[in-house]
C-alpha cells in the first residue's frame, strides 16, 4: 500500500514538473522577446544616431536648407530643457499636492479628483495642445511658455497617479508611529510619509518628464518651433528636440534624416541623464534628512 501511494505521488510530481517546465519556458520566451524588442529599438536608434551624433550636432543649429548636410539640434536641446523645465515646475507641486490631498486627507472631492485625473491621463496630447492654443496662444502668441503649459498639462495627471500609488505604499504603521508621538498630521506627511516615498515619487516624476520630452503634438500648436537661431527667451517661439526630429524625419533628405536619428538618440540620452541626476539628488536629500 505504501508502494502505490509512493507511485501516485511520483506521477503527480512529474505532471506538475512538466507543467512547471512548460510555463517556465513560455514565460522566459516572452520575457526574452520583450527584452529583444527593447534592445532592438535602442540598438537601432543607437547605431543610426551615432552615425551623425557628434560635437557639431550638439553645438550648432540646423542648416537653413534642410537638404544640406551638417548642423545640429542645440536650439532644440535648449528648447526642450526649458519647456520641460517649465512643465515640471508647474506639474510637480500640483501633481504631488493633489496626490497628498486625495491619498492622505481624502477630503471632499477626493473621489472626483481621482476620476478626473484618470480622464485627463486619457486625453490625447494633441487635444491638450489645441486647448492651450485656444486659451493662451490666441491671446499671447506662440511661445516656450505655452509649450511648457501644454507639457505641464500632460505631466500633471501622470504625476498625480504615480504619486498617489507611491503614497499608498507607505505603511500605515509609520503614519501611526509619528501621530502617536504627538506629531501633527501635516508634519507627519512632510517629515515621514514624503521622505519614505521619495524614491518612488522621483521615479514617477521622471516618467512624466520622459513622456513630456518626447511629446511633439502639443508643441506644434503652442511652441511652434524655431530653427533659425538659439532661443532662450521662453516668451518667444521655440524649438524642441521632438519638433526637430519630426521636422527633419519627414523631409525625405538623407542629410535631414541623419540629424533626426542623432536627435532621437540625444533625446533618449537626455532622459537618462535627467533620471540619473534626479536619483542622485533624491539619494542625497534622503541622507541629509538623517
Amino acid at each position: 500500500m505504501s508502494e502505490s501511494t509512493g507511485l501516485g505521488a511520483v506521477a503527480l510530481l512529474s505532471r506538475r514538473r512538466v507543467v512547471d517546465q512548460v510555463l517556465t519556458v513560455t514565460l522566459s520566451v516572452v520575457m526574452a522577446g520583450t527584452l529583444a524588442l527593447l534592445l532592438w529599438v535602442l540598438g537601432y536608434v543607437g547605431v543610426e544616431g551615432l552615425k551623425y551624433l557628434g560635437p557639431e550636432f550638439l553645438t550648432q543649429t540646423p542648416p537653413g536648407n534642410a537638404a544640406d548636410a551638417g548642423g545640429g539640434f542645440l536650439n532644440g536641446i535648449i528648447g526642450s530643457t526649458i519647456m520641460v523645465g517649465i512643465a515640471t515646475v508647474i506639474a510637480v507641486p500640483i501633481g504631488v499636492g493633489t496626490a497628498i490631498y486625495v491619498q492622505e486627507y481624502a477630503g471632499p472631492g477626493a473621489g472626483t479628483a481621482r476620476f478626473l485625473t484618470d480622464v485627463l491621463v486619457g486625453i490625447p496630447s494633441i487635444v491638450t495642445g489645441a486647448f492651450v492654443y485656444a486659451i493662451w496662444v490666441v491671446h499671447f502668441g506662440f511661445s516656450g511658455i505655452a509649450g511648457g503649459l501644454a507639457l505641464g498639462l500632460v505631466m500633471t495627471p501622470l504625476i498625480v497617479r504615480t504619486s498617489e500609488e507611491m503614497l499608498r505604499l507607505v505603511s500605515r504603521d509609520l503614519r501611526e508611529a509619528s501621530l502617536a508621538m504627538g506629531i501633527g498630521r501635516a508634519r507627519t506627511i512632510v517629515s515621514v510619509v514624503l521622505p519614505t516615498a521619495s524614491s518612488g515619487l522621483i521615479t514617477g516624476v521622471m516618467l512624466a518628464v520622459a513622456r513630456a520630452m518626447g511629446e511633439t503634438a502639443p508643441l506644434l500648436l503652442t511652441a511652434l518651433g524655431n530653427d533659425l537661431f538659439i532661443e532662450t527667451n521662453p516668451t518667444k517661439r521655440m524649438s524642441s528636440l521632438s519638433l526637430q526630429i519630426f521636422g527633419n524625419a519627414i523631409t525625405g533628405y538623407r542629410t535631414a534624416q541623419a540629424r533626426a536619428w542623432a536627435g532621437a538618440l540625444t533625446l533618449i540620452a537626455l532622459v537618462l541623464i535627467f533620471t540619473l541626476i534626479a536619483r542622485l539628488v533624491g539619494r542625497r536629500s534622503a541622507i541629509a534628512g538623517r
Binding site: 505603511s171 504603521d173 501611526e176 508611529a177 509619528s178 502617536a180 519614505t196 534622503a286 534628512g289
Partner: peptide
C-alpha cells in the same frame, strides 16, 4: 505615548 505590535522605526532615519 504608544508602542505598536509591529516595530515601526522610520525606514529613512
Amino acid at each position: 505615548g504608544m508602542v505598536f505590535q509591529r516595530a515601526n522605526p522610520f525606514p529613512t532615519m
